[in-house]
Every structure is written in structure tokens, then in C-alpha cells.
Amino acid sequence: MTRITVTVDGVSCTDEVEPRMLLVHYLREVVGKVGTVVGCDTSNCGACTVHLDGRSVKSCNVLAVQADGHEVTTIEGLATNGELHPMQAAFHENHALQCGYCTPGMIMQAVDLLKENPNPSEEEIRVGLEGNLCRCTGYHNIVKAVAAVAASSSSERSSV
């Protein structure tokens, strides 16, 4: 067993884990962050996407021990004071989910995308989400939701 300390959604967690434990299993089974899901287990689908030190990663392809001393944000850590993150609200408003299984990872990747490119074209949104698979929506409303967040934050920027 190895002792690790990871800050998860702002809370410092210290635990003894087996080195072979995947970050996604640590988050779900040890910390209880079941908002992060496992879709494929082959690192293709992106459902398990979280932020590690502010950058998106597939948590099924990272060991928990690799996160020792680092910061993780999951879908459960996006909302503040009970208010949805703008990306969560936009997914809701634009009907960007059906079964919802891809949604936690899709939202985490969409947030990362806008951080790196605040004003993406439709093409750039689609390419930026290429590591996240959705079996239900056909992606159309997901792209719309991300574009809506980009548009509202750029109008906010220009009005200040």
C-alpha cells in the first residue's frame, strides 16, 4: 500500500491505496465521487474525464498514486454554492444529453476546451471533443451548448 494525499474538489484526502488502483476507482470507491463514471475502460470514450491540476485527463488511464500531491476536479466540484457551472446550465438548456452517461466527461472536457480556446469555431468544438463519445445525441446539441457558453462569456468580456 502507498499513502497518497490528493485534493479532490477542494478537499484534501489522505488514503492508503494499492499502487495499481486507477484514479477513477479511487475517486468513485474511496472518495465517493460517483459522478465520474467508467464508460469503456479502454481509454477511448472520455466518460471518466476529470481535471488534474487544471488539465483534462482520462481518469481510467492515470494511477491514483500518480495524482499524489496534486489537485483533481470532478464533475461534482464544478457547481459553486448550489449554482450550476455555466457549462452544466448550458447542457441543461440546450438539451445536450439524453441518457446522460457521457455527460460528466463531456462537460469536463468542454470546460477544458474553452479554457484553452475561449472562442472556438464549430469545427474546433467538434475536434476538441474528439476524445469523448456520445451514443445518444449525435453531438449536435452538445456543440450548441458549448458554443452558447463561449458566446455568453465573450459578450460578458466585451461588456466590461
Binding site: S43, G46, T49, L52, R55, S56, V57, K58, N61, V62, Q109, D112, L113, E116, G128, E130, G131, N132
Partner: peptide, 9 residues
């Protein structure tokens, strides 16, 4: 290469 998540790691 791959996707943004994999390029971060």
C-alpha cells in the same frame, strides 16, 4: 495524436 486528454498526459 489521439485527443486533448491523452495529449495532456
Amino acid at each position: 495524436v489521439a485527443d486533448p486528454q491523452i495529449r495532456h498526459r
